[in-house]
Amino acid sequence: MITANKALNYRTDRTSRKIGGRIGYGILYTVLVLAAAVQLLPLVWLLFFSLKNSQEVFNLPPFALPSKLHWENYESVWSQSNISRYFMNSVWITLVSVVLTILLASFVTFAITRMRWKLRSFVLGLFMVGLMIPVHSTLIPLFNLFQKLHLTDSQVSLILSYTAFNLPITIMILLGFYYALPKEVEEAALMDGCSVNRIFFQIVLPMTASVIVTAGIINMIYNWNEFIFVNTFISSDHLKTLTVGVQNFVGQYTTNWGAVGATLMISIMPILLAFFLLSNRIVEGIAAGSVKG
C-alpha cells in the first residue's frame, strides 16, 4: 500500500514537474551552449586573424572574414622561417619518445601483472609516486646531469626526459587493461613451451593494441606540447621544437598578427587533427589516466 502510494505520488509529481522541467531544461541547455561557445570562439578568432592581413586585423570586426583569405600567411611563415624545421623536430622527437615509452611501459606492466617476483608492488609504487613529482623540482639537477654527460643541446636529453616522465601515466593507463585481459591464451602458450619473449611480443602486445593507441595519443599530446625542457636544455635554434620555436618566433613578430596567427595554427593543427579523428580515444585515455589513480 505504502509503495503504491509513493508510486502514485511520484507520478503526479512528475506531471507537475514536466512544465517546470522544460523551462529548466531550456535554461540549462542555453548555459551549456554558451560554455561551448566560450571554449571555441577564441580558437575561431585565431583561425580568422590567421587569414587576414595587418590592415584587416585592425579594420574588420573580429569575427568577419576578409573577402580574400590570406592563405599566403601560412606559406610565408612555413617557407621563410624555421617553423618547418621546428615542426619536423617536434614530429620525430614526439614519435621516438612515444614508441620508446609505450614499449618500456608495456614491458613493465607485463612483468608486474603476469610475472611472479617479490618486489613488484614496491616497483609499481615507485612508478606511481613518480606521478606526483613536479617536473620543475628536477630541472636544475637534470640540466647539470645532462651537461656532465654532454647531452645539453642534444635532443637525446629531451627523449630521455619525456620517456621517463611519461612512463608512470602510461603504465597507469596500461595497467587496468592488462588486469582485465584474459590469461587463457598466454597459459596455453606457456603449456606449449612458448618463451616469455614470444608470449609478450606475439600474444600480449598485439592484444593490447587498442589501449596502446589510447596511451600513445595521450603521450603524443604531452610530448608535442612540452615546453620547459626544450626551453632549458636546448640552445641551438635548429634543434628546438615547435613550442619553443613558436615562442621565439612570435616574440619577434608581435605586430604581424597574420603571421602570428598562422604560426599558432600550424603548431596546434596536428593535435586538432588527432582530436577530430580520434576524440573517443582521447576522452577515454584522459579519463583512464586520471580517475583510476
Partner: peptide, 29 residues
C-alpha cells in the same frame, strides 16, 4: 614466469630511467 633474468630485462631499463631522471634529481635538488 618467475625467471629472474627475464624480469630484470623487462623492468630494469625503465627503472633505471626513472631513478636517473626523476628520483636522483629530487634528491640532488
Amino acid at each position: 614466469m618467475s625467471d629472474k633474468r627475464m624480469i630484470a630485462l623487462y623492468v630494469i631499463p625503465s627503472l633505471l630511467l626513472i631513478l636517473a631522471i626523476i628520483y636522483l634529481p629530487i634528491v640532488l635538488t
